[in-house]
Simulated scan of single mutants.
Amino acid sequence: MNHLIVYAHPNEDSLNHKILQTAVDALKAGGHEVVIRDLYKMGFNPVLSLEDTKALKQGNLPEDIRTEQNHLTGADVITLIYPIWWAGLPAILKGYIDRVFAYKFAYTYNGEGTVDKLLTGKKGVIISTYGTSEDYYEAIGMEEALKQTSGEGIFEFCGVEVAEQLLFGGVNKSVTEQERREMLERVRSLFSSF
């Protein structure tokens, strides 16, 4: 299978980076093709500009958008790995979604006013970390909201079937090294199952 991993964390010493490496190692051990798009290393421009929107309407894709769309097109499985910052995606990843999951590429509206999902047939995995405790996020409904926003609001809106969504909370202070190892084992197990 062809796997595309879109990664959004600036710190190579982070748990997110360990999650990325664990996923890649498991996939490669299973003989899968893996493409990693490390948005911070790439210096990806997250700003959807007026020029971008005009170019997209005219079918003249900016080269950086065309490159990313080609990676999406070639992927059987799309994985997003990122931290939750201020109850949402990091700006660089939100901008990636804004620019790359574009109208007429990822979705379109049909004559009945409903959505045609243009990425149907692909699977998606979302792995997010956050510093707040899991108990608190679960109690206030934030975990469910995060799943709806990214899983349903992004992937499923475009036809990508969410295969798994892992949310790891309390990663800043409250989890132990043993719990971190268990998180990474869940990641390894997930990607080994493909």
Rank of each mutant, 00 (worst) to 15 (best):
residue 108 T to N: 12
residue 80 L to R: 01
residue 28 K to V: 15
residue 151 G to S: 09
residue 26 A to V: 10
residue 168 F to E: 01
residue 24 V to L: 02
residue 64 D to I: 04
residue 20 L to C: 07
residue 150 S to N: 14
residue 167 L to S: 11
residue 52 D to W: 02
residue 131 G to D: 04
residue 193 S to G: 06
residue 88 G to K: 07
residue 160 V to A: 08
residue 108 T to W: 00
residue 37 R to A: 11
residue 5 I to W: 03
residue 33 E to M: 06
residue 123 K to G: 13
residue 194 F to N: 00
residue 113 G to F: 07
residue 45 N to F: 11
residue 56 L to D: 08
residue 7 Y to D: 04
residue 191 F to D: 02
residue 193 S to A: 10
residue 145 A to L: 12
residue 140 I to Q: 03
residue 3 H to S: 11
residue 25 D to K: 10
residue 8 A to G: 06
residue 96 Y to N: 09
residue 113 G to I: 01
residue 91 A to S: 15
residue 193 S to F: 07
residue 134 E to W: 05
residue 37 R to L: 10
residue 89 L to T: 13
residue 53 T to N: 11
residue 178 Q to T: 14
residue 106 A to T: 02
residue 46 P to Y: 08
residue 179 E to V: 11
residue 24 V to T: 11
residue 69 Q to I: 09
residue 180 R to V: 15
residue 161 E to Q: 14
residue 184 L to D: 02
residue 53 T to K: 10
residue 114 T to M: 06
residue 15 L to M: 13
residue 106 A to K: 03
residue 85 W to T: 02
residue 17 H to C: 07
residue 57 K to C: 01
residue 50 L to H: 13
residue 75 A to D: 04
residue 126 I to V: 15
residue 164 E to H: 11
residue 102 A to C: 06
residue 42 M to W: 02
residue 15 L to P: 08
residue 29 A to Q: 15
residue 149 T to C: 10
residue 60 N to E: 14
residue 27 L to Y: 03
residue 130 Y to D: 00
residue 166 L to A: 03
residue 51 E to S: 14
residue 163 A to M: 12
residue 86 W to N: 13
residue 9 H to N: 14
residue 141 G to V: 04
residue 143 E to L: 11
residue 165 Q to I: 00
residue 47 V to Q: 14
residue 187 V to W: 01
residue 151 G to E: 04
residue 65 I to K: 02
residue 194 F to C: 05
residue 51 E to N: 13
residue 62 P to T: 06
residue 93 L to E: 02
residue 51 E to W: 09
residue 119 L to V: 09
residue 59 G to C: 08
residue 167 L to E: 08
residue 42 M to R: 11
residue 111 G to A: 14
residue 46 P to Q: 09
residue 99 R to Y: 03
residue 89 L to G: 06
residue 140 I to L: 02
residue 174 S to F: 03
residue 19 I to M: 12
residue 103 Y to T: 05
residue 180 R to M: 15
residue 67 T to P: 00
residue 3 H to K: 05
residue 69 Q to T: 10
residue 14 S to E: 04
residue 140 I to C: 10
residue 112 E to N: 13
